[in-house]
Design a protein around this nucleic acid. Structure first.
Length: 640
RNA sequence: CGCGGGGUAGAGCAGUUUGGUAGCUCGUCGGGCUCAUAACCCGGAGGUCGUGUGGUUCAAAUCCCACCCCCGCAACCA
């Protein structure tokens, strides 16, 4: 039997995941279930990534231990998986004992063979926060957390030699055109990272301790990459000693399903780790798109977070699964709104599918006391109906092979639509009036039941509960993949159940009002309390020198998206200042404007241009405006 | 001139690799039917396929060129 090993990324346990985060679970589940359905020996892994500084901080802020915090979130994630009917075979947590041991082993092995070496990591250090920040994480050159000064510091750290393997990886990617999916992402990886040359990766930290310790060097903690990525093999029992039975059987992974944002880690760092370990690489990595809420990314601060439980509670698991699987494009971000959700629910699930099952079962009950008749009196339209059903089976298999899950559902719906049409064509209610047409009527209903059986079987990978409910209504026995190769596995003489609607239609207007009411309730109209910076004394403030200036010239900085370069007249001198406000101001708008310049800020170089000072701007969310003196005052006047 | 993706009916998408004047779902309008969850079936309207009235070609949404807009990634929002 063919094996099939599929994984999701492990979810970071910093906070409760929203619906967008859970999309990956459902998508992966559908693919896993389908492969099981067609007879593969599937191993489906998911889990949680539980280490790191951020978790340590969140736990500290909440006054609990990191372990308590991750236990809680991991529990929530497991509950969500359960609620969504996720059929994972295993749930790994990076705090699991066996994983931590295996990771230590991997780290040691890579160190012993020289692929990991000790060096120094240079970054910006904030003493009060005991945190390292990279250049890009800094806010205005200060600690992004507390806003205080940071120091250029070095710390000891271990590095993984990526450069050593980059040519081999490039070759692998070129020789395996399907390795990175979708295609567009592959170019991004190759052109942005591989071709310019890889920098060795820092794989340890000393700045926090919530992580897996480097066993031969206490004080160092293994940083996220080696810890998290290796879950895919440690979950199968891989260690640098014993490789484990599951590992022998299932590795390499057939596909890693991950968010497009972490493609780099999975297509560069992870393969290189495996190469260094001498293990085979995963066959495919699929970076799925994101599910957005309306036009925007979901985020708490925007107040537009939808949790899976909200939707499941209101509409049921399968409606949620159906929406996610059907409405998400293959390679572009998709959106979820209550409006679209409900109209898909009504049209696809309640009307087209639900009604087909309902009307068919009702007719079997009405005309034959619920007993399925033999399908032996064929007539017009039968051929096309059968053909549509059997072709759909092939089409679904085909699109699932290339992970086009949404297309698969479309293929199933062609059968649903064809069956609905068949009812209109054959008009069973007319046949029922003519005793001589008894046999034909039985056959028509038989064919419909058989179609419904095929539909139920095909749906089992996507909306398993509904699939089971349909099967129960028609009392179907054969639901396996092999039974789909021929039309006619339904047994005559079997009794159907009393009809019962699969999906009750939603009153969209009414429901929308309910949703709006429930969302509006906890809304706070006031401006939320901002995060404050530490108090300073007047002496500290006096160190700042603000002066009024006038913009003489302004132009965009080439090679930069956000940067404007302006020449500012301060009265006593002219100087060049760069500002990242191109998004809000066109260069010509600013010429002639008076601005407030921080005059004693250290000169910096941005995109190869010197910037001597900064201009003050007020900003909130995505709004921004420059600060300008209210009345005329000589250039160079000090502001305080 | 950093790398890449996208711009197709009111909405959401497919089609672009292997050129042949456009397709799916929802919505909308009209008709049919009554087995069924005011559901189902049929038909119509609606698109100069981002712009250039560009190039190649007998023929371009599809190939080439230029430009505009959106989105990722990278890079600096002093």
């Amino acid at each position: 039997m063919d094996k099939f090993y599929i994984t999701t990324a492990i979810a970071y346990t910093s906070k409760t995941p929203h619906i967008g985060n859970t999309y990956e679970l459902v998508l992966t589940d559908a693919i896993a279930r389908w492969n099981r359905f067609i007879g593969k020996d599937v191993f489906f892994l998911t889990g949680t990534d539980e280490h790191g500084q951020k978790i340590q901080e969140i736990a500290e802020a909440a006054g609990i231990t990191p372990q308590q915090h991750v236990d809680r979130i991991a529990g929530e994630i497991k509950d969500i998986a359960k609620m969504l009917n996720i059929s994972n075979d295993k749930f790994i947590r990076t705090t699991d004992d066996y994983h931590m041991k295996a990771v230590q082993g991997i780290f040691k092995r890579l160190y012993d063979q020289g692929d990991i070496y000790k060096s120094e990591y240079e970054g910006w250090y904030c003493t009060p926060c005991e945190s390292f920040w990279t250049e890009t994480q800094l806010k205005d050159g200060k600690c992004p957390d507390c806003g205080r000064e940071v120091k250029r510091t070095r710390e000891e750290a271990y590095f993984l030699k990526l450069s050593k393997y980059q040519d081999r990886l490039l070759q692998y990617i070129e020789e395996h055109p399907d390795f990175i999916q979708p295609e567009s992402r592959k170019k991004e990886m190759v052109n942005n990272f591989l071709k310019p040359g890889l920098q060795d990766l820092c794989v340890s930290r000393t700045s926090f301790n919530w992580g897996i310790p480097v066993e031969f060097d206490p004080g160092h903690v293994i940083y996220v990459w080696i810890d998290a990525l290796s879950n895919y093999i440690t979950a199968l029992g891989y260690t640098t000693g014993e490789k484990g039975e599951l590992y022998q059987k299932y590795w390499p992974a057939d596909v890693h399903i991950i968010g497009k944002d972490i493609l780099r880690f999975h297509t560069i760092y992870w393969p290189i780790m495996l190469m260094a370990l001498g293990e085979p690489l995963p066959k495919q990595v699929f970076g799925h798109p994101w599910m957005l809420f309306g036009e925007e990314k979901m985020s708490k601060s925007r107040g537009n977070v939808i949790y899976a439980s909200d939707l499941v509670g209101r509409f049921g698991v399968d409606a949620v699964r159906y929406y996610m699987l059907h409405e998400m494009p293959f390679a572009q971000d998709g959106t979820i709104t209550y409006d679209v959700f409900m109209s898909r629910y009504n049209s696809d699930l309640a009307n087209t599918l639900g009604n087909l099952v309902n009307r068919t079962v009702a007719m079997v009950n009405k005309y034959f006391d619920g007993v399925i008749q033999p399908g032996d009196v064929s007539g017009d339209f039968d051929g096309d109906l059968k053909n549509t059903a059997l072709t759909a089976v092939k089409n679904v298999a085909e699109s699932m092979k290339s992970l086009h899950v949404a297309d698969s559902l479309d293929h199933i719906w062609t059968v649903v639509n064809r069956a609905n049409k068949y009812i209109d064509e054959t008009t069973p209610w007319v046949l029922a009036k003519d005793e001589a047409q008894r046999g034909r009527l039985g056959t028509v209903l038989y064919n419909l039941i058989e179609c419904i059986r095929i539909i139920a079987a095909l749906l089992s990978s996507y909306i398993p509960d509904t699939s089971a409910r349909i099967a129960a209504q028609i009392n179907a026995s054969a639901l396996d993949f092999d039974s789909l190769s021929n039309f006619g596995a339904t047994e005559a003489g079997v009794k159907v159940a009393a009809g019962e609607p699969l999906f009750a239609r939603i009153d969209i207007e009414k429901t929308m009002k309910e949703i709006e009411a429930s969302m509006a309730a906890p809304e706070e109209p006031a401006v939320p309390e901002p995060e404050h910076k530490p108090e300073i004394d007047i002496e500290t403030f006096a160190k700042l020198e603000f002066r009024v200036g006038k913009v003489l010239e302004c132009e965009k900085v080439k090679r930069a998206k956000k940067l404007l370069k302006m020449q500012i007249d301060l009265g006593y001198e002219k100087r060049q200042v760069l500002s990242g406000i191109a998004q809000w101001y066109a260069p010509e708008e600013l010429v002639g404007k008076r601005v407030v310049v921080v005059a004693n800020l250290k000169t910096a170089v941005l995109c190869g241009e010197e910037s001597r000072g900064m201009i003050l701007c007020a900003s909130e969310g995505d709004q921004l405006t420059i600060v300008t003196p209210e009345a005329d005052i000589p250039l160079g006047s000090e502001v305080r």
